[in-house]
Design a protein around this nucleic acid. Structure first.
Lengths: 153, 153
DNA sequence: TTAAAGTCTATAATTCCTATAGACCAAATG
DNA sequence: CATTTGGTCTATAGGAATTATAGACTTTAA
């Protein structure tokens, strides 16, 4: 299960990507628009900024904006900002592999071998979809939905 | 990240699959052999039994045994026993879909669309590998390792 | 210089995970 | 049929992570 932080982050990024008019948006605006607890969103946006995904400007007229174009931002990058490397087991982490406490031999561990495939599968999906792709797919579903409604009225 | 329960479960199942001689093994035996806290393992084995993966016999000479052949037991079934359906978001659960609290429209939610692909990717891997497959792969790695050692000595 | 707006630290409330204790129940065997 | 072996169930404790809030601090534009 992904965390609230990740889900809120994706909502907030979607908001920014869709509203490409203004150059910066207030935390309060985004919180209100997407129904996210303001103080919680604050921390989330800060993380996204530290990851280089968002840019911010302080002071009057300031706010947050995308630092990366929606078509250049893989969803995997956003998810990793909050869920860490997408390792199902510690020994499959991206940096120096951390042996599980209960594991005798990392190299031959069956669980590890299988979970390595899981990790590959997950990252392949998440790194293959950009923020723009996600919004487009959402839009397609919305079209389908309204079309269905047109027919049924 | 998968839980200790899942990892311990896979270790215990591997132990039973490898030791196909006796008909039943004691919790205490398995706990000792695989270095798992006995009381904790107790709860794990009970879950596996309730899932129909293990069978048990009480009383003297009793113990646990596999209720499913290793080649007929997908790892996904074991993981699901402890991690639940492998839904990255509640709205992708196997039963009646539970709408996320923060979600406005499930049908068009971009996060949900992407996570559906993730779920498919994960389940495809986990349901495509049996306990036997896992042990075989582990054995292959062990062979590789000993071969390497032979050369270096 | 003052008000706007992001940044940082601390902390509360809740939930989940890991693990242990102990009472209880079922079955085999003499 | 009683005793002993061994699985079953309930409760619970400790700790870590998650979700969220409060408030002080810093930067910057006008």
């Amino acid at each position: 299960m992904i965390s609230m932080k990740t889900k809120y982050a994706l909502k907030a990024l979607g908001f920014l990507a869709r509203a490409q008019g203004k150059d910066a948006f207030l935390i309060a605006e985004m919180a209100a628009a997407e129904n996210i607890p303001k103080k919680f969103l604050e921390a989330i946006l800060l993380t996204l900024k530290n990851q280089g995904i968002l840019a911010s400007k302080k002071g009057p007229g300031g706010g947050y904006s995308l630092a990366v174009a929606p078509e250049a931002l893989p969803i995997g990058r956003v998810v990793r900002a909050f869920e860490g490397d997408l390792a199902p087991v510690p020994c499959l982490g991206d940096g120096a592999p951390v042996k599980c406490t209960e594991c005798e031999d990392m190299a031959t561990c069956g669980t590890r071998l299988v979970m390595a495939d899981v990790k590959t599968a997950v990252t392949t999906v998440l790194d293959g979809v950009t923020l723009k792709d996600m919004l487009d797919r959402s839009e397609v579903e919305r079209q389908k939905q309204s079309k269905t409604i047109d027919y049924t009225i």
